[in-house]
């Protein structure tokens, strides 16, 4: 599904990613953990195609296709989804209208007709129930005045609507109380299938109790310094990141 080879990326001439290698197969969940400033969010932004990051070396493949030169929307059309750590507030655009636009632009790119309105409504209803989202919420301006939990739930709602092949969840657990965490994790688990893959980026092990990873990678100083099974997350939780720092 996702194959990253020797990825180097900088922002304003400061190198943040220093040679990342990562293989994620369809049906798998990978967790990327690491201390603050290790490059976790940069990695997710680079995969999604944020322009202010300059890829200086290396390649990113999605299902065997090099997506490194594609615009963010083109990557989205190919099935990349990024759940933002800090979802952006867009006053004046309702959640529903935003999703309509996103879905229809995606369909347009694939040469499909716009989704009929009744089908769209049905899809919205179905997916909002999955995330336990109140219908009133859908007519509010996107992320404006949303609580931390609402923002994250809305991110996963969008993921459910767009049905990506590769979902990257950037610190989706931050700012969530335990109930919201459960709803969000439950949503993600229901969307998992043998045909898609999830990359969970997190600082803490907590989320991984709910979204159980097949592999855990530790990112430090822009490199993956350790990989293992889900037990690695517990080990990290126990020993703390100093353990990684002292070894590197």
């Amino acid at each position: 599904m996702l194959s990253i080879k020797n990825l180097h990326a900088s922002v304003e001439d400061k190198e943040i990613l220093r040679g990342i290698n990562l293989e994620v197969k369809a049906g798998e969940v990978h967790a990327i953990m690491g201390p603050n400033g290790s490059g976790k969010s940069t990695l997710s932004s680079v995969i999604a195609g944020k322009e202010e990051y300059e890829v200086t070396d290396g390649e990113i493949f999605l299902e065997g296709e090099d997506i490194g030169e594609l615009a963010p929307e083109e990557r989205a059309h190919k099935g990349v989804f990024l759940s933002f750590q800090y979802p952006v507030e867009i006053p004046g655009v309702s959640v529903t209208n935003f999703m309509k636009t996103a879905i229809n632009e995606s369909r347009k790119a694939k040469g499909l007709e716009e989704m009929p309105a009744n089908e769209m409504l049905k899809l919205i209803r179905e997916k909002s129930e999955l995330l336990e989202i109140d219908r009133k919420f859908l007519s509010r301006s996107l992320n404006e005045g949303f609580s931390g939990g609402e923002k994250k739930r809305n991110e996963i709602f969008q993921m459910a609507m767009l049905e990506p092949k590769l979902a990257i969840l950037d610190e989706t657990d931050s700012g969530l109380d335990i109930d919201a965490l459960r709803i969000v994790a439950n949503g993600v688990n229901k969307l998992r299938s043998k045909d898609n893959a999830v990359v969970v980026i997190t600082h803490y092990q907590r989320l991984l109790d709910y979204i159980v990873p097949d592999y855990v990678h530790v990112l430090y100083n822009g490199k993956i310094v350790k990989s293992g099974g889900k037990e690695l997350a517990y080990e990290l939780e126990e020993k703390g990141y100093d353990w990684i720092k002292s070894e590197n």
Binding site: S45, A48, G49, K50, E51, A71, P72, E73, R75, A76, H77, V80, F81, L82, F84, P87, V88, I90, F98, T101, A102, I103, E105, S106, A109, Q158, L162
Partner: peptide
Amino acid sequence: DAMFYMQSRGIPQ
């Protein structure tokens, strides 16, 4: 940031 957010959802520039 808002532009990137929307583009990442498949909405062209």
